Computed example of a mutant assay.
Amino acid sequence: MIIRIMGEGQYRAPDAIIEDLNAIDNRIVELVEKGDREGFRNELLRMVSLVRERCEPLEASEIVKSDLILPPSDLTFEEARGIFRGQGLIED
Rank of each mutant, 00 (worst) to 15 (best):
G35C: 06
G35Y: 00
G35Q: 00
G35T: 10
G35V: 07
R37L: 12
G39L: 01
G39Q: 04
G39F: 01
G39V: 06
G39Y: 07
F40E: 01
F40P: 02
R41A: 12
R41G: 09
R41W: 03
R41N: 09
N42H: 13
N42Y: 14
E43K: 07
L44W: 01
L44K: 00
L45C: 08
R46E: 15
R46W: 08
R46Q: 13
R46T: 14
M47F: 10
M47T: 13
M47R: 07
M47W: 07
M47P: 05
V48M: 05
S49C: 10
S49E: 14
L50P: 04
L50A: 13
L50F: 06
L50N: 04
L50C: 09
V51D: 04
R52G: 05
R52H: 02
E53L: 14
E53N: 12
R54I: 09
R54S: 13
R54F: 09
C55N: 06
E56A: 09
E56Q: 07
E56N: 09
E56H: 11
E56K: 11
P57F: 00
P57V: 02
P57M: 02
L58Y: 10
L58Q: 14
E59I: 13
A60Y: 07
S61W: 12
E62A: 13
E62T: 15
E62I: 15
E62R: 10
E62Q: 15
E62D: 15
I63C: 14
I63P: 13
V64C: 02
V64H: 08
K65A: 12
K65I: 14
S66D: 07
S66Q: 02
S66Y: 00
S66F: 02
D67C: 02
D67M: 01
L70R: 00
L70W: 02
P71Q: 06
P71C: 02
P71H: 03
P71N: 07
P71I: 05
P71R: 01
P71M: 04
P72Y: 10
P72V: 12
P72I: 08
S73T: 11
S73W: 06
D74W: 10
L75N: 06
L75S: 07
T76P: 08
T76V: 02
F77A: 01
E78Y: 06
E79D: 10
E79I: 05
E79R: 00
E79P: 06
